[in-house]
Design a protein around this nucleic acid. Structure first.
Lengths: 341, 341
DNA sequence: CAACCGAGTTAAACCGGTTTAATAATGGGA
DNA sequence: TCCCATTATTAAACCGGTTTAACTCGGTTG
């Protein structure tokens, strides 16, 4: 008796379809569809009856079928590195704006074991109508064929391919701001811990070299990466006895790694050596880090990126766009005047 | 001429379907489907020919249609707070294991403007076959009706509902470890900055009270939250002149916020006051934070969670499971002997 | 009184695959 | 030579919706 009254096994119960509703209401499934989508036509009476039945049956429209029938999914996709706080900021903002604009957002995780390509494939499988790529590292050609037919907005990295929009900040300006700031403080031996072999990393590395040269100084580059761990490893190979007084790290996470090593090695920052980051992420803002860094206006980037995607989808733009925002320097306590020898 | 040779407009070109391949190869679409899915039957010759054509046309199977036709999606969904480093760790691990097991993973973002309910709905719309909820805050009843028919694994929070599995650590043990540690160091006035009104927060708050009482001390609780900002705000309202010598924060992020305030207020940690976190996230491990905290064995939780989901999907388990792991204390430098008065 | 009308509804095609029963082609054994 | 097994392939139903042309019917209108 008891067992008979229990609801059917979870996960076993067939979910009600539009056909069930139609049968129950004694109308055609086409009409039910019209009603559920709020189309004009059906009478008020029928509408009320059908909606009541739908509600009673706990009907949820099957998005899969719906997607197949319409051509739209109203779904946007974004690749994210979960551990990256700057990505987190961008995602929060993009999510907010996508909500406003009536789009859904799905995230594809890029992790050490799950690369960008896999993340993009998952998102495409979701039938995302447009993709946002955060700090994409795949070759442009590969991206082009992977995402064929889908508008892409690359955030942070410039991609010159038809169908790709770009939202980024001027890396050369950002790096110049940092280098100029350090030079003004008297630093002459400034080392760059780069971000590995990504495109953004290459841009910043190049911008660093230009800025350093402009001051008549000589560049010095240490291979690094995007994570705290990379920063630690790079800093361990750094020999301060050579006269280096400042480190410009690829991003905040990397800079935090550099700080971490210096802390353990009892090397005072900023008295003995100055350190800078990039992104002005939450990490940099913490008083314990207090990192001089560059702000990339994530909200503005998010807004432009979503707008660009939607213009392609709902508007009729086919021309590629590239937005280049001006980054700005945020001076904190991780940089100081060069120590007197 | 030039324009004529250009590939069709991106985003405009119709993607090739199984029917196109069938036409090209002069076979039926059913056969193409069999071949693409590696079913036995088709001859080696036809197989090779069809695959070659598929490749040349750049065919990608339309997951939407595929999902509709089969009943399976092999897609798992997880709700995540992007800015939470502990979530990031879990996601990386779950992604890795899901990959191994042949499942895809889609993430739904929970942000200040996009709540858990919305994230779950998006994931369900994706036709996820099972859901992982990280630190879910929705009422159990709401969850039950929202996810009707889909197995759910709640990570971190206990949920006693049919169809829900749970993977968590023993919050009471974790909090007791922290409180015991502090008491051993001589602390008598230990304040808890809680995590707001989530379920996990309630568990920890309760565990804190029990542990404190067990030592014959009196509990003191400050409303907090899950983020650094919450920690800062809570710490600002804390009056140390009342004799408080230790703060047990809800999690690492909150603890970092507390540290941040103390730093700004020039209150030495741990000399004047000890601070503890929870999660043993990357943040806590940084030398600058050096946070005494509790490790929650994220890898083990990830493994169990994925296993639980897949057992429901591919196996035949219908019995609910609850795994409770033992957390362990990680002592670092944010805690020290109580200062002599 | 026939033609027309519009509101409400339906039937049927379609989206792009998967799956299975039925069919065609091939070869072997009696 | 005929029949039966195999093997390769096809046709058709189906998944759960959306969309549109066509239909019904009571009520004008000329």
């Amino acid at each position: 008796m008891t067992s008979k009254e229990q609801p059917p096994e979870r996960g076993t119960r067939r979910r009600p379809t539009i056909r069930d509703i139609a049968a129950e209401a004694g109308v055609s499934k086409g009409l039910v569809s019209l009603i559920l989508n709020g189309n004009p036509g059906p009478s008020a009476e029928t509408t009320a009856r059908v909606l009541a039945i739908a509600d009673r049956l706990g009907y949820r429209t099957d998005r899969t079928a719906s997607l197949l029938a319409r051509r739209r999914s109203r779904m946007l996709g974004i690749t994210v590195t979960p551990s990256n706080p700057f990505h987190a900021e961008l995602v929060e903002e993009i999510q907010r704006i996508a909500d406003q604009r009536g789009y859904e957002l799905g995230l594809g995780a890029v992790t050490p074991s799950h690369d960008e390509r896999q993340a993009i494939e998952t998102l495409l499988d979701f039938r995302c109508e447009a993709l946002f790529l955060l700090g994409s590292v795949l070759p442009a050609k590969e991206l082009a064929e992977l995402t064929a037919g889908v508008p892409v907005v690359s955030i942070g990295r410039s991609i010159d391919m038809p169908g790709f929009d770009v939202v980024r900040t001027a890396e050369d300006v950002g790096m110049a701001l940092l280098v100029d700031h350090l030079v003004e403080l008297g630093h002459r031996r400034i080392t760059h811990v780069d971000g590995g072999d990504g495109f953004v990393s290459a841009e910043r590395r190049h911008a660093y070299v230009s800025a350093i040269r402009r001051h008549g100084l000589s560049p010095a580059i240490l291979p690094g990466g995007e994570t705290e761990r990379d920063g630690i490893l790079a800093a361990e190979t750094l020999d301060l006895s050579g006269g280096v007084t400042a480190v410009v790290a690829y991003n905040d996470r990397c800079a935090v790694g550099v700080l971490d090593h210096f802390d353990r090695a009892r090397i005072n920052v900023p008295k003995r050596v100055s350190v800078t980051g990039y992104d002005n992420s939450l990490l940099a803002q913490l008083h314990r880090m207090n990192l001089t860094t560059v702000s990339q206006a994530p909200k503005e980037q998010a807004r432009l990126a979503v707008a660009a995607a939607i213009e392609r989808l709902d508007g009729d733009r086919t021309q590629d766009q590239e937005f280049v925002l001006e980054p700005h320097l945020v001076v904190r306590r991780s940089t100081a005047k060069v120590p007197s020898p």
